[in-house]
Simulated assay, not measured.
Amino acid sequence: MGSLAMYLEGPGRQRRSVQVLSSQRKRLHTGSVDSIKIRNRSISEVEVKTLVDEHGQIAVQTDYDGFRFKYPNSEIPWSLIVG
């Protein structure tokens, strides 16, 4: 079985090959203000990933599911595609 490929898909369906740069568990506090959008308030901890693309640009996770990322210099969300 081969390895999985990961891509971020952005505007115009542009895709960038990415790898996990870091991963950490983040504890959520009731009423806390952070950049991760939470739909289910019963969740107390999420895994937050940072990805790096083939150009060395870093993308940070913006949702608790782990499928939305943003680059620091842009407000456009990119979607994680695994294949």
Rank of each mutant, 00 (worst) to 15 (best):
G2F: 06
S3D: 05
L4S: 14
L4D: 09
A5I: 08
A5Q: 13
Y7E: 06
L8C: 02
L8R: 00
L8Q: 02
L8K: 03
G10E: 03
G10L: 03
G12S: 10
R13I: 05
R15I: 01
R15G: 00
R16K: 09
S17C: 08
V18L: 01
V18D: 00
V20I: 13
L21C: 03
L21K: 11
S22A: 12
S22F: 03
S23L: 10
Q24M: 08
Q24H: 12
R25G: 05
R25W: 07
K26W: 07
K26H: 09
K26T: 05
R27K: 14
R27E: 02
L28I: 09
L28W: 08
L28T: 03
H29G: 07
T30Q: 12
G31P: 10
G31V: 09
S32G: 13
S32A: 13
V33Y: 10
V33K: 15
V33S: 11
D34E: 13
D34W: 15
D34C: 15
S35R: 15
I36M: 05
I36L: 09
I36D: 00
I36Y: 03
K37Y: 06
I38V: 11
I38S: 04
I38W: 04
N40Y: 04
R41V: 10
S42W: 06
I43A: 02
S44P: 02
E45A: 14
E45R: 15
E47Q: 10
K49L: 13
T50H: 07
T50P: 03
L51A: 00
V52R: 12
V52W: 01
E54L: 05
Q57W: 08
Q57E: 06
Q57K: 14
Q57G: 06
V60S: 03
V60G: 00
V60D: 01
V60T: 05
V60H: 10
Q61W: 11
Q61L: 11
Q61A: 06
T62H: 08
T62I: 13
D63C: 11
Y64A: 07
D65T: 15
G66E: 04
G66H: 10
G66K: 09
F67L: 11
F67V: 13
F69T: 01
K70M: 07
Y71W: 13
Y71I: 03
P72Q: 08
N73E: 08
S74H: 13
E75V: 07
P77K: 12
W78S: 06
L80F: 06
I81A: 12
V82I: 15
G83R: 15
